[in-house]
Amino acid sequence: MRVQQHDAVELTDQQWDLVAPFFSDPPRRTDGKGRPRTSSRPILNGILWILRTGAPWKDLPARYPSRSTCHRRFQEWISSGVLDRVLQALYEQLADQGQFNLSDCYIDATFVSAKKGASRFGKTKRGKGTKIMAITDANGLPIAVHTASASPHEVTLVHDTLDASFGFDLPQRLIGDRAYDSDQLDVELAAQGIEMIAPNRRNRAKTQDGRALRRYKRRWRIERLFAWLQNFRRLVVRWKQHDGNFFGMVQLGMMVVLLRRLQRCL
């Protein structure tokens, strides 16, 4: 598989400086034996190449460390919670600069088809797949992400998605499509101080104030986030990916989105 150079996603020096403390290079063995472990920056760039192109690990170009080195380090970062901490840190930096607006937040899911033995998928009318649940702020910046089987209804995944927030602040209003029209969900979120705004399903009596529903017209902001994520071809189709590895790729996609915004602010 041949992929052009411009298809790669490599961090700029400024972006790397923002996340470098979390991807610190592994220490040498205390006995001095063995080869020194490869620096983290080229490994991260190699993983981002896989994320962007969707290519198999065996097609990783020679300009990056070996596929086994990149894949092994990727799994180490997942298991040790490095990617969770990176997203939390980027959220805090953007919040300190006043970049987040939690007055109106948007929630939705996108479907990712699962192929050849991917784990944790569900059968739907569209075939086997996984859901990526996400929440953005009023500016369209991601503030939470969660993955789940495609089978459960989205309304049952709202709390898990809120729990996966990058920060500790709750949205004032959560805006979704008709899939989120639920009296029970309205009550549960209200107990947390969150107003749920969603158009009523056709078989339901009108329960939403028309003035509040005007905010629904700005849901294109979360659709834009999913469009950004679909530029990362590894997130369009799941090919034999374990749950943790797939979610790690989703987190890296979110990291790139936040880094690009943070870089513009500096």
Rank of each mutant, 00 (worst) to 15 (best):
V145K: 09
L83D: 10
S79T: 01
V82T: 15
A150H: 10
V82G: 14
A144D: 11
D163K: 08
I132W: 03
F111T: 08
V145D: 10
S149L: 07
D96I: 08
S119V: 08
A62V: 14
V158F: 07
A138N: 13
D163P: 12
A95P: 06
P152V: 12
I132T: 02
I135P: 04
I135T: 01
R126Y: 11
S68K: 06
D96K: 04
L157Q: 14
V155N: 01
V112N: 01
G129L: 03
H153W: 09
Y106H: 06
W77E: 13
M133H: 05
S151V: 15
E92K: 05
P142E: 01
R72C: 04
S119L: 07
R85V: 00
C70V: 10
T161E: 13
C70Y: 15
R63G: 00
R72T: 10
T110S: 04
V158D: 11
R126H: 01
D163F: 13
V145E: 02
T156F: 02
F168N: 07
Q99C: 15
V86G: 00
A114L: 07
Q99Y: 03
A148M: 12
A150Q: 04
S165V: 09
D104G: 02
I132M: 02
S151P: 15
C105A: 00
S149N: 01
K131W: 13
A144F: 14
A89I: 13
A109Y: 02
